[in-house]
Every structure is written in C-alpha cells, then in structure tokens.
Design a binder for these strands. Structure first.
Lengths: 244, 244
DNA sequence: TATATTATTTTTGTATACAGAATGCCCGCA
DNA sequence: TGCGGGCATTCTGTATACAAAAATAATATA
C-alpha cells in the first residue's frame, strides 16, 4: 500500500504543508479513482497512519469523511474498505447524475461567460489530443475537468455540490465496470456538441439538457452491467427455505 | 444547553443503549429541526461531551458527520456552530429538492404498493387532525413522515438518499425563515392531491411530478425570503473603494 | 477616553493508552 | 481428511494528556 504514496507524502512534507485529514482524503480519493486502490481493499487505521506519518485520530477523521463521500465503507468494529458499488447502484448513480447534470446544463445554457467557455474549449481540445496520442490517464483527467467545470459554474450551488459528488461516484464505477477489452471510454464528438448546445441561446436550455443526458447514457452503455454472481440476492433466493 | 437533553440521555442510558456518535447526531439534528438550537449556537466539544456523558472523541465524530449533513459548520480551530443557511442557499435548496423529489414522485407514480399507500393516507389524515386541533409540532412530524416515506420508497436509492438529505435541509430553513406572524406552513389539500396523483396510472408520471413541484413552490412562497442586511455583500458594495 | 498590546482563558488538534470486538490460526478430535 | 472450539492476533472504540490556536479580558499608553 505504501507504494506510490511515500513520495507524495515526502513531497507534501517538503512543501511545508502539514499533513492533515484533508490531504489524506484527497490522496485516497485519487488513488481509488486511479484504480491504485481496488474495491475491497482494506484500509486499517494504523497502516494509513504510518503511511502518512500521522496518528489514528487524523486517519479516523479522514475515513469518516471518505465514508460520507461514498468512497469508503465504514462499519462498526470492522476495518474500512474501499467501496465496491453494486451494479444496481451504478445504474441508479448514473440516473441521478443525468437528472442533476442535465438540470445544471439547462441552467447554464446560453449563460456561459467567455472565460469559462474558453476553458471548456481548451479542456475539450486537450482531451482529444490525449486520446489521439493514446494517453488514457490524461484523457480521463481532462474529461473530468470538463464536467467539474460545469459543476463549479452551476448557478445553483447546492446542485453544483451534488453534481461534484455524483461525478466522483460515477468515475469510480466507470473504473470498476469498464469492459476489460475496451481501452477507453472516449465518446468522439460528445463533448464538442455539448459545448455547442451550452452556447445556444437561453431559449434552448432543453437542448443542453438532452445533450448531457444522451452523453451520460452512452457512457453508461459502454459499461459491462450484466448481472454477476455477487449481485444475486441470497435472501430472495432462499426465501422461505430456512426453517428460521 | 443541557436543558431538555438530560432526560433523553438518562432515558437512553436506562434503555441500555450505549451512547454513541449516532445518538448524538440524531439528538442534535432533531434539536436544530425543532429550533431548540437556533442557528449560530456554539457547540463546544467538551460541553456536548458533558451533556451526553462521553468524551470528545465521540463528540468529534458526531460533529464531522453533522457537518457533512450541512447541519453544522465546522471550520479549523473554531467552535462548531449550528449552520444558518443564507437566503440564496435556501432558494437553491428548494430548487434542488423540487428537481429530486419531482423525479422520485414520477418514478413512484402508479407503482405504490398498497401498504405504502395506506401508510401515506394515514399520515395525511393525522396531519389534518393535528392541524385542526392546532398541534403544530405533531403536524410537522406527520408532514415530514409523508415526504420521508417517499424518499424511503424511491426505487432509485441514490436519489432516495439525496432526497432525505434535502428534506432535512429544507426543514431547517423553513424553521429559519418562516414568517413570524404565520402560525403554520400547512397547505390545505396539497398532500391529498399529491397522493391522488401518485395513485394515477404509470402513464401519468408527469402529473405526480407537477404535484410535488407545485407543492414545494407554494411552501417556499410561504417563507420570508426578502434580502436581509446580513445578505449584503460588503465586497461588492465597496468594490474599488479601498485603495488596497 | 480610545487604542494597542499583553495576559489569560477557552477550545480545538493530535498523539497515545487501554479495553473490547472481530478475525484468523492452530490444535484436538472424529 | 474434515470439522469445531479455544487461543492469539489484529483492529477499532473510547478516554485522556498535552500542545497550539483562537477568543476574551485586562492593562498600559497616548
């Protein structure tokens, strides 16, 4: 577990940044996102504390915050584990994100300030470049930046925060359920046409919403969401069998 | 602060329930909801610990969880305080809730099982009774139960959890911004007609959505959301005045 | 009197110690 | 070989101690 973190911790220490719970939250979140911490990974408090050079108190706080972000599973008297959302939850998360991000896009349509539009355009270009040179991590980074920009620019801050959370959760399940043979989840042309829809006049808010909804639906369709054995509900299968 | 809690703590101890962070979270949340803890109230860790008979460790965990529920404001090196959402955030919270609860209602339309429908009906009746005998706390309790039932029954659990959170947040701001002269926020007939819409066939999902949206809009309209002096942004007022 | 500065008190941040729960291992037994 | 009970280990839950930061009170000074 201490693999790539040692350097980051050392770097942060060098920079004079005091290691606090927020730092740990960021690092763990990123590691989960980048699949360096696969779902189910045990995260004992002492071990994490050793890695980051802090005591259990700090780790504890970080873990409860990660749990409230749905990144980690924290149950009483058990070690925290990296969460592995079920296929059903994955579908529900995508549905929720379509609803929320669709609304944010509708609110934003026609009202983008020039600097934001420019930043969006730049990220979209860079995503294309990264994809063309086969740099998948960079592509993901830019793709995420695009959507986070929408969340940050949401006029409704409550919805914006909710969207940030949903982007994180969908990213996790994308990494989890991506078809192995599929190299990338890049959808050519989706982001450019999304930006075009956002630039339309305010009277076409529904166009922006539909662009987002369609984009997210295509993304979900790229995943392998067939039922697995882990999904089978033992309770329903053996209902009435046990003599209690 | 120790006013009404002493009894509750004693009762819980008598019942053999070990006081844990969840208990504290519930109690504080309820106290905020019932306006026994007005916004801005300081919540020092030791004091809370004394009230509930636990050490700071437990209180600390409770406070971070309350912060992630947006009930409490927790900033570094400062005492936690009961959050006082701004008027703008109030509007945004209502908008978010309309979006989410509307979708949940649409998903639920025509698919209510009989026991849930019966429970809804019962709560609606009891709300009417409580209102007629002027028992406002009981009325609020039943009104909340109605909406929490919708959240619990949401087929999409992600949206259901989000709705639970939004119901809490709107309840807090309703208590905060209710017009003082207004005795109650009861909207006669809204809940019955909502149930009627939910009972309609599945082809009328939009009817259920509209019923919820209209209901929540009327609720928001009952609040006093005129700009207050605390809302004035000094930065924008004095922009360019200071010679920096 | 008003203001700046220092001292005191509160309150949080972090580390650590010990008790209790959960897990896993090992050995005995059929 | 397969299985079950008891023991050891690991890990979390909670309380507590000390340091650092913030808030408050007090004091000196112009």
């Amino acid at each position: 577990m201490s693999s790539a973190w040692q350097e980051e911790v050392a770097a942060a220490a060098r920079a004079g940044n005091r290691i606090s719970d927020r730092f740990i939250v960021d690092q763990v979140r990123r590691a989960v996102l980048m699949q360096r911490l696969p779902p189910g990974t045990r995260l004992p408090e002492v071990t994490l504390g050793e890695v980051f050079g802090v005591s259990r108190s700090v780790v504890r706080k970080a873990l409860t915050r990660l749990a409230s972000e749905h990144v980690v599973d924290q149950r009483p008297n058990q070690v925290a584990r990296v969460r592995a959302p079920s296929i059903e939850e994955t579908r529900e998360t995508f549905a929720a994100r379509r609803l929320v991000e669709g609304e944010v896009a509708a609110l934003l349509a026609g009202g983008l300030d020039t600097v934001t539009a420019a930043r969006l355009e730049r990220e979209i270009e860079r995503e294309i470049e990264a994809h063309e040179r086969g740099d998948e991590p960079a592509r993901i980074e830019h793709s995420l930046a695009i959507h986070h920009l929408l969340a940050d620019q949401s006029p409704n801050r409550v919805l914006g925060t909710m969207l940030t959370d949903l982007i994180l959760r969908t990213s996790i399940v994308i990494a989890l359920y991506k078809r192995p043979n599929l190299g990338t989840c890049y959808l050519k042309g989706d982001h450019p046409s999304l930006l075009a829809a956002l630039r339309q006049g305010k009277d076409d808010a529904e166009g922006a919403r539909e662009a987002i909804v369609a984009h997210l639906a295509s993304l979900e369709a790229l995943l392998d969401l067939g039922l697995r054995e882990e999904e089978t509900d033992l309770h329903s299968i053996f209902a009435g069998v046990a003599t209690s």
